[in-house]
Amino acid sequence: MLSRNAANLYWLGRYVERADYLCRLLEATIRLAALPASHGGADGAWESAIRSAAVADRFAASGRRFTEADVGHFLALDPTHPGSIRSCLEMARTNARSLRTALTLETWQAINTAWLELQRFGTEETDPLTLMRLLDTVKQALLAFDGAAHRNQLREATYWFMRLGTSLERADNTARLLDHKYHILLPRTERVGGSLDYFQWTTMLRVVSANTAYRWVYRDSVKPWLVADLLILKPQMPRSLIACYEDIVFYLDRLARERGRPGPANRLALAGLQRLQATSIDELFQEGLHEFLLRFIAQNNALGDAIAEQYLF
């Protein structure tokens, strides 16, 4: 496979995942903002969304305020913001278009349709109902994309590179989301269910679409340390850091089989997975959750560099 195509596929996976994450983040924030300020709602929710998307500096520079209209526009439709859903989809589609030979017709159609549908919403601020509809549309279109890729793409380098990008981006998103909220996850002696932070935790679960998953896994009320456990160390949870790394190791392994031999990226990914497997949530809290997450984000970035190096992007 051409190295340029491999890079395009990898970034296609990343952009699609980022757009999906932003949709879920906005949806959860709209819910949270509907609560009174004393429960973490109102305008505090929008500030929090900007921080969870790791775009605080850019947002501040744009001179906007933490309101639904401003944040919603900035994260969803702003064509001048490279981190908006619109920009992510545009880049994903450009990548896909330059790769038409590598994608099946249906995979291409799915991403092309997502882009065409989004364009109907324009580039201006929207009312909340339209924003909800937009998020729903994009989410559905991206599900169609994932489905088409999963069902029809040959299981060879094309698919592995795309999935690799998805998993790496997903790990990054989950880690940043956790790091932004790490202070509310620390174990404290508080009345369960009555905490001010309760809605913050459930919002976080919602962002990674794990509200129901949590109940299935723990069969318990929402407790912050268990939320952290779910999103970091539970392999059953598809957006957890450990699940992402299991996937990354698998995809890199498949690519190595086609290429003939594993490289530095394979070793880095495996080391990362083993570190997660060897740890427990108690140890993480003792070590310091914030420190752990910062280190993880840095290591995840280093892995991205190693992949680019290994496949000559």
Partner: peptide, 17 residues
């Protein structure tokens, strides 16, 4: 063009392998 290079009068393309 950026995927290709000529070495010793032979044309090559850059691939992941």
């Amino acid at each position: 063009g950026s995927d290709l290079f000529v070495h010793d009068d032979v044309l090559f393309m850059r691939t992941t392998a």
